[in-house]
Each structure stands twice: as C-alpha cells, then as structure tokens.
Design a protein around this nucleic acid. Structure first.
Lengths: 136, 136
DNA sequence: GCTCCTATGCTTAGGGC
DNA sequence: GGCCCTAAGCATAGGAG
C-alpha cells in the first residue's frame, strides 16, 4: 500500500510507470471535468507520453482543444500587444520624467551658475579696500 | 466539513464558486506537475473561467502551451491524413471486394444462363414425341 | 478577500488474481 | 496487459478569525 508519501521522481520501471500514468491520467481527467462542471469553466489538457508508443491524450476533445488554442493564441496576441503598449507607455513616462529632471537640473545649474557668477563677482567687489592689499 | 460526497453541480454562488475554483485549480496543477515528473511526460492545460474577470490559467506556461499546440496541430493533420488514407484504402478494398463479387455473380449468372438455355432446350428436345401434342 | 484548521471522502500505490 | 481490493496519504468543504 502507499505507506510512505509518494516519492516525486521519474519512474524508470516502464511497467510501473505505465500503471501510474494510466491511474493518474484518469484521476486528472476526472478532476478537470469536475472543475469544469463545478465552476462552469472551459478547460482543455494535452498530455504527451514521452514514450511515443502511446497517443497523446487530449481532454475533453481535439476539437475543443483546437478551439481553445485558437482563442488562446488570439488572446495572447492581444495581451502581448497590450503588454508592449504598456511597456511603451512606461518608457514614455520614464522619458518624460527624465526630461523633467533634466529640465530642472538645467534650471538649477543655470541658477547656480548665475549665483556663482554673482558670488564670484560680488565678494570681490565687496572686499573692503583695506583688506585688498593685505591678502596680496 | 466535507461530510457528504461532493455534489457535482454548477455552483451558482459566486463567492463559493471562486473559492472552489482556486482550491481545485491549485490541486489540478499540482496533479499535473506530479504526473509530468513521475512519468516524464509533456503536458499542458488551459483553463478559462467563464467569468472573464479572471485571466485564463495556462499551465505550465504559455510558451509550452503554444509549442504543444503547434505539435498537436501538426500531429492531428498527420493523423487526419493517415485516417483519410486508411479510409481510402478501406473503400478501395471494399470496391475490390465488390468487383470480385460482381465478377463471380456474372460468371455464375452466365453459367446459369447457359445451363438454363440447355435445360430449356434439352428437356424440350427430350420430350417424347407422343407427349408433345398432349401438353398443348 | 485571505490564511489556517480539520473531518471527511477521494485518490492511489501496491498487490492478488 | 486487465480488473479488483485495501490501507495510507492527500485534497478539500466548510468554518473560524
């Protein structure tokens, strides 16, 4: 019996693997259909045994899977473009912010320059004449 | 607590439905990843809540789903053509069998015709002359 | 909405045939 | 390979905060 917790590792023994595969695939499909029923959702699953001897299991049907795939692809295109647009907006915002910063910095610099010029000039012009000779 | 077996019916209460949806989706994804690990398979699932407020859940990833979908589509084209070819073979076989039957029937008929002609002729020619007048 | 809890039922590994 | 059984472990409904 299943005395210890399942070891979540690849089953190398083919027979055992196949048994587990069948049992768990069945359980999985049951769970999917239950979720589908309980919550009124559309769902599909594609399961490819790596050993290609067995066909891929498609639930609930190939037709549904195809339909959902198309829908999903369309949706992802839309989402991708949305994401792209969102990113573009983000970048534009950043650029705008950066521009704003640059502008402010320029203004600041300009103000400082002017101030500095004044400072450079004013102090000199404000040095009392009696000190001018002393400093030299 | 879950005293009685789950009633497998659509949950109309939105809050309860959402709770169930989240719990069971989580469980489902866990089961899928376990199956994937244990049996070394590729699998993907797409789950669309019918209430479009929530994004579709794609497991394990959109990229994987896309890849598997392409593969699946290709495969189904191949399988479809295989099926078509198999059907064509089958139809051809049936035609061949039918032809064979027709041929045999024709041969039989021909043989019967000949035999009949002989029967038609022979008995007449074998009717004793003393009876020929009686039958009329 | 959420996290955490826990009783209960479901799933399933292992084994027999 | 299949089917059936059982014990153990797991998932989860319902509730509390």
């Amino acid at each position: 019996m299943t005395r210890n917790g399942v070891k979540l590792a690849y089953i190398s023994n083919d027979a055992a693997k196949n048994v587990t595969y069948k049992k768990r695939k069945k359980g999985l499909v049951k769970k999917m259909s239950e979720l589908s029923t309980l919550c009124g959702i559309e769902a599909c699953a594609i399961i490819y045994p790596s050993t290609c001897d067995s066909h891929p299991k498609v639930w609930p049907s190939a037709v549904t899977a195809h339909r959902m795939l198309s829908h999903f692809k369309m949706l992802s295109v839309v989402e991708r473009s949305n994401r792209t647009m969102a990113q573009e907006r983000l970048v534009r915002q950043r650029i705008a912010h950066a521009d704003e910063k640059v502008k402010k910095l320029c203004e600041n610099n300009h103000r400082k320059e002017i101030t500095q010029v004044n400072l450079d000039r004013v102090p000199n012009s404000h040095i009392p004449p009696w000190l001018e000779t002393e400093s030299n």
